[in-house]
């Protein structure tokens, strides 16, 4: 088996634990801290399927399965980018009330070393925690992130075929 690594990103957010929990688990609207994707699931509980899809539902960027779901403290799921042919990683979100706010830790485990997935996870972890901080504290992502989302939207039609939602129905288990 290939070498794997673990990546940890941690940040303190001024807000309530419920607000942060809602941001990472809400469905039916886009998650501004998760690359403007929308969470689709057949019910957030261990064994449930999850998909991160674009707003129009046409493309699916991330697929996985829920391993742990313990509101409002811990959420763990398997994770794979649909555009890379890498093995599944495990992503955990840990929330803890501290110093009048929330300590939020995002941990990626079993990340295959030297893959595109590793590169994306390294940048993605820091990106998600700092954008989540901004969304909870100010109601929106920072300027640079907002600009990038406009770019994402423009580039959406160029997404590879492997990311088409028709390839990733919720009814079909991914693991």
């Amino acid at each position: 088996m290939a070498d794997t690594t673990k990546i940890v990103s941690k940040i303190h957010i001024k807000g309530t634990i419920q607000e942060v929990w809602r941001e990472i688990t809400k469905t039916g609207e886009i998650q501004k801290s998760m690359f403007n994707m929308q969470l689709h699931t057949d019910g957030l509980a261990p064994g449930a399927q999850i998909r991160m899809r674009t707003k129009n539902g046409k493309y699916t960027g991330v697929v996985g399965e829920v391993l742990e779901f313990d509101p409002p403290n811990r959420y763990v799921h398997t994770f794979r980018f649909t555009n890379f042919d890498d093995p599944y990683c495990t992503v955990s979100y840990d929330l803890r009330e501290a110093n009048g706010g929330v300590d939020f830790t995002l941990t990626s485990e079993k990340v295959p070393v030297g893959t595109k997935t590793e590169k994306q996870m390294r940048q993605g972890g820091d990106w998600i925690v700092k954008t989540l901080k901004s969304v909870v504290e100010t109601g929106k992502p920072g300027m640079g992130v907002r600009m990038l989302y406009v770019l994402f939207k423009l580039m959406e039609p160029m997404s590879p075929k492997s990311t088409l939602t028709s390839n990733w129905p919720l009814e079909k288990s991914v693991t």
């Binding site: 673990k6 990546i7 940890v8 990103s9 941690k10 940040i11 390294r122 972890g125 700092k130």
Partner: peptide, 27 residues
């Protein structure tokens, strides 16, 4: 300073680098 995050795994305490604080300085 959260530049390092530690986690207990069994009896060992494992250390991880957290890039977020430096990213915030950069931002």
């Amino acid at each position: 300073a959260t530049l390092i995050v530690s986690e207990k795994e069994g009896r060992a305490r494992k250390l991880y680098h957290n890039a977020v604080p430096i990213q915030m300085i950069y931002d």
